[in-house]
Computed example of a mutant assay.
Amino acid sequence: MFFALAFLSLLIERLVGYPDWLFQRIGHPVTWIGSLIALLDKKWNRQDDSFLRRKAMGLAALAIFLGLTLLIALGLQSLLLALPFGLILVALLGASLPAQKSLEQHVEAVATALEREGVTGGRKAVSMIVGRDPEKLDEAAVCRAAIESLAENFSDGIVAPSLWLGLLGLPGGAGYKAINTADSMIGHRSPRHEAFGWASARLDDLVNLPASRLTGLLFVLAACFIKEASPRRALRAIFRDAHHHRSPNAGWPEAAMAGALGFALAGPRSYGGQMIEARFMGEGGRRDLNAADIRRAIRLARIADAMLIAFFGLLALAIAP
């Protein structure tokens, strides 16, 4: 049943996304969870506490917002499944968790801005989806940033929530989203959050591990359907480059996409005025990327997304009574 839930949730979100009118009226599950995390961060993450105490308070905060999310999701799922067409009703809620439509729109906006407004427009558009210093990016760096965001967020924002939906139902998908939201808000190695966000960051690494590997495989398979792409090169890049990434998970989708399309992604980049040294994913690939290359990456992601939806559909049929 949960594989069918993941299939229906992905299909609904792919077709309609999360409507703007609904977001304006009630917000989004991520904003609800984010508000609670921000409140706990403000109340419990005290600068004058010891490192160990802040670490413990961060663990307690994680237990509270994750436990509350799981209880609410489990209650809603149990209530709706008892109704006629209950699975479809739960899928409507589940469709708020993956972000296929919005991710594609945000990345495509970078390509469009580059084509219409040049590098200035590209910097502005890419600053909406990445945290690096936009003023230091030339056209190629803007394109690399957009494609890296597409690869990483395809794993974190699409594959992971749908995978946990398929494994554990609505509580699994919602619980994953709570962990991932916490990591994005407090999981940074900054003076304020290194201790308080430690538990959230480590748990996020763990729950994203299976999705990152599956995403790499999906990009390899998707490369089989694009004439200029190479599944063999994608596999080679995964095994050669993925483990060099600063994240234990992001290297898999980034290396797979870089290798598949013959790009060099990642490498040195600047955050908050500080230069971060990092190896390139897809070493030896092209670095002089342009808007057309962003659209090639989107095409690869679309094929991988169709494969993901089909994967859950086939699993649901295979185990149907």
Rank of each mutant, 00 (worst) to 15 (best):
G284Y: 05
A255M: 03
A278R: 08
F225Y: 07
E194D: 11
L203A: 04
P248T: 15
R279P: 15
I238E: 06
A223V: 13
S200I: 09
I276E: 05
G267V: 08
E228W: 10
R240M: 01
T215K: 00
A266R: 02
I226D: 06
R269D: 08
D205R: 11
A304T: 00
A291I: 12
P210W: 11
L214T: 00
G251A: 03
A301F: 05
S200K: 02
W252N: 09
R246D: 11
R202C: 11
F280Q: 01
H193G: 01
F239C: 00
D293N: 13
H243A: 07
G216A: 11
C224D: 07
I238K: 00
D204M: 10
R286Q: 14
R192W: 11
R213E: 03
H245C: 10
Q274T: 15
L308R: 04
R232L: 15
R279V: 00
R213P: 00
A306P: 01
A291T: 12
G267M: 04
H245V: 05
F219I: 01
W198A: 10
L221P: 00
A278Y: 07
L315I: 06
N208F: 15
L261K: 09
M257S: 01
F239V: 04
D288S: 13
L289C: 11
A199Y: 00
G262P: 14
G282H: 00
K227H: 14
L209I: 04
H244E: 06
A264Q: 06
E283S: 08
A264I: 05
M307D: 00
A310I: 13
K227I: 07
P268D: 15
F263H: 05
Q274F: 12
R240G: 06
L217E: 07
P248I: 15
A242E: 13
E254K: 05
M257D: 02
S190R: 09
L218N: 08
F311W: 15
A264T: 10
M275E: 04
H193V: 09
L218T: 06
N290T: 15
H243C: 03
L235R: 06
R233G: 01
A256V: 05
M307F: 14
S230I: 12
H244P: 02
G284L: 04
F280E: 04
D205A: 04
P253I: 08
D305K: 13
E283T: 06
L209N: 11
